[in-house]
Design a protein around this nucleic acid. Structure first.
Length: 673
DNA sequence: CCTCCCAAGGTTTTT
DNA sequence: CCTTGGGAGG
């Protein structure tokens, strides 16, 4: 391996890279080159003879993990790189549980339940144990509370003692059933992926020590977004050698809704004695105009450590701010600008549209297809949320973990095979009375079900699963997969359902795409079915091919964190969108602070130019309603912005006269600006 | 047990 | 707007 050249990095960065032992906290502002610091630090450690196997680098998103792996490979070669553990917290949890499943009371083939699965579970619990009309409660709220409790290590038992309202005592009961439910079916939720390993570490010190010795050098990216249990697992692992290196920026903490605790980064020096603290304040990414806008916005937050980002990149272009009538017009203007930028020599891959919520993306997607602009949507799982995909997926999960009740129930009578709701109800009762699983009840169905035909249907269903369980675990070939799809008869069912041929064909095509992607993915990595499914449930996006194409990127602010683009569009910069309606509603200033950080993250993604657009009307459930510009626009210094008024529908870009009008209009809206 | 039809409710953000 | 789920009829 060639000696690594660090000379292009600044003094602070080099200091961070070369401090290999002991706790290190790097407070890294947006665009200050923190990813470079992490990757170069790993290269440096390897140069200093640290074994790649002893390095663990934890990131927040799979995209970040993959990108980091790639950058490390480039630096030190793939041979060394492949022995380094670079993954998300959840993927780390899966890895540990795959190795230690018995100690967590799981079977080897445990299943991860995703959100929609868990909603189903809670719905079922309600049906089973509560009177429907009893309480008007949103399933989502319950799941959020349970998840919060889990991330704080509150067991169902403990929860019961602190449940001090009628609502919470209902939640407490649900939590109790929920917990038992997942256990019986050898399933885990996302929180379990962190908390179960912690439990194992607590109960089996020798296991903890094994992992401590394995991961002697730990690095955590985006540390400001860790929650309590994530802190705990890192803390345990780092206890022995104390080689813990964390990087983060409190201004970019945007996962509060998921229990992220900014104190983890703010208190790091106190939690780890002798911490070396390094601040990176030079920004290498954005123009001064963009930085001024970002600084202006983030200054509105009271609760933050004071930082001053600076850059040598130059003043650059002014920020464009479009005033636009509605979303249809917004999409049109932005797409037009993108075409223009491309004509002027900007590659599509250097352009991104970054929005607050996923649904904002769909309109852009349609326009991109229509105008034939290549694009990709990051983190959009809607394909995998499609019914036909989830159905096929359920069948596949059953081949691994046939106990998994949600999946079993989902497909036991789809396509219809004479096992209706009443039958399922009876079997459930049997399972409950005998304190056994739904699967066991199915096996013993002749004890409960009197209709001979139904019993036969159930038994032949079980046989089908058993048959392909053998075949596909044994040899995961495309032919075998297709044979399975054929035998479950799902395609014919879809054709039946969709007599208007078009959408039926579309659904069948989706299934084929899914199966083909899956086959290619497993085949490429030589991956067995069970591993693939865990992977998939953790990261549906990995199923897509990750090709570097010249495409415009569409993504949410959350997904955009850590990324950068020459030209960034932020559509819908309005009250109710960002800050989001839900965050305004609560009346909690903390929620607005998080929205402000989101705006900050979005703005700081831009390198050369930022284009913000504000709507006068937005669409809600198909209806147009008035909407105001985001409060955050006031905090962007006026001298770095050029307003362009499209609100009359006729105007064109960069017309001084219209710009004047735009200012006038904004004055009107804000009173004084 | 299956199927069709209408009403209601739903949108943050992610692993 | 569009998906889901409950209820009635076959």
């Amino acid at each position: 391996m060639n000696k690594i050249d660090f000379s292009h990095l600044n003094e602070k960065q080099q200091e961070a890279i070369k401090t290999v032992n002991g706790p290190v906290l790097v407070l890294a502002g947006a665009g200050s080159g923190k990813t470079s610091v992490i990757t170069y630090r790993i290269a440096y450690m390897i140069e200093k003879d640290v074994s790649p196997k002893n390095i663990l680098a934890v990131t927040f998103t799979n995209k970040a993990a993959n990108e980091m792996k790639e950058r490390i490979s480039k630096l030190i070669g793939s041979e060394n790189a492949k022995n380094i553990t670079v993954c998300t917290f959840h993927a780390l949890g899966v890895r540990i549980l795959r190795e230690q499943y018995q100690k967590a009371g799981l079977t080897k083939n445990f299943t991860i339940y995703t959100d929609s699965d868990l909603e189903r579970v809670v719905k079922d619990i309600f049906k089973e144990y509560f009177n429907k009309e009893d309480i008007d409660i949103k399933i989502r709220d319950i799941l959020n509370i349970i998840s919060e409790a889990k991330s704080k290590f509150i067991s169902p038992k403990q929860f019961k003692t602190i449940a001090n309202s009628e609502f919470l005592s209902v939640v407490s009961k649900v939590y109790d059933y929920y917990d038992k439910y997942l256990k019986i079916y050898s399933s885990v939720d996302f929180d379990d992926l962190i908390s179960k390993p912690i439990e194992i570490f607590k109960n089996y010190p020798e296991v903890l020590e094994y992992y401590q010795n394995r991961f002697k050098y730990i690095m955590v990216d985006e540390y400001q977004d860790t929650n309590d249990s994530q802190f705990m697992i890192i803390d345990m692992l780092a206890k022995k050698y104390k080689n813990i290196f964390v990087v983060g920026d409190d201004d970019q903490s945007i996962y509060g809704f998921r229990g992220a605790n900014v104190d983890n980064i703010l208190q790091f020096t106190k939690q780890f004695a002798g911490t070396k603290e390094i601040k990176l304040e030079q920004n290498y990414r954005s123009t001064t105009s963009i930085l001024n806008a970002a600084n202006g916005v983030i200054k509105g937050n009271k609760n933050r450590t004071d930082k001053s980002l600076w850059s040598k990149v130059g003043v650059g272009e002014k920020i464009l701010c479009y005033l636009i009538d509605d979303q249809t017009s917004e999409v049109e203007k932005i797409v037009r600008k993108i075409k223009y930028l491309n004509k002027e020599g900007c590659d599509y891959k250097n352009i991104a549209i970054i929005y607050r919520s996923n649904h904002q993306g769909t309109k852009f997607e349609e326009a991109m297809i229509q105008k034939e602009i290549p694009y990709k949507v990051v983190g959009d799982t809607s394909f995998y949320d499609r019914k036909e995909i989830r159905d096929v997926l359920s069948y596949l999960v059953l081949l691994i973990n046939e106990k998994s009740e949600v999946h079993l129930k989902r497909v036991i009578n789809y396509p219809a095979r004479n096992i209706g709701a009443t039958t399922v109800e009876k079997l459930m009762q049997y399972a409950n009375q005998n304190n056994t699983s739904f699967l066991e009840a199915l096996k013993n169905c002749d004890k409960v079900i009197t209709t001979k035909k139904t019993v036969e249907s159930i038994l032949s269903f079980l046989k089908l699963i058993e048959k392909y369980k053998k075949i596909l675990n044994d040899f995961l070939s495309l032919d075998n997969l297709n044979a399975f799809i054929k035998e479950i008869n799902i395609k014919n069912q879809i054709i039946e359902e969709n007599k208007d041929i078009k959408s039926g064909e579309f659904k069948i095509k989706n299934i084929d795409t899914f199966i083909n992607n899956m086959y290619r993915f497993t085949n490429d990595k030589n991956m067995p079915l069970d591993e693939y499914l865990l992977n998939f449930l953790l990261e549906p996006d990995s199923n897509k091919k990750e090709e570097k194409k010249d495409e415009v990127t569409l993504l949410t602010i959350h997904a955009a964190k850590g990324l950068e683009f020459d030209y960034v569009f932020i559509p819908g910069f309005n009250e109710g969108i960002i800050p989001h309606e839900r965050s305004i509603e609560t009346g909690n200033p903390k929620d607005i602070e998080e929205e402000r950080r989101l705006a900050y993250v979005a703005i700081t993604r831009a390198k050369k130019q930022l284009i913000i657009s504000m709507l006068r009307m937005k669409e809600v459930y198909g209806k147009l309603i008035d909407c105001e510009p985001s409060r955050f626009i006031r905090d962007i210094p006026k001298n770095v912005v050029e307003f362009i008024d499209f609100a009359k529908g006729q105007s064109d870009i960069s017309d001084a006269e219209i710009e004047e009008e735009a200012f006038a209009k904004l004055d009107e809206i804000f009173g004084k600006f």
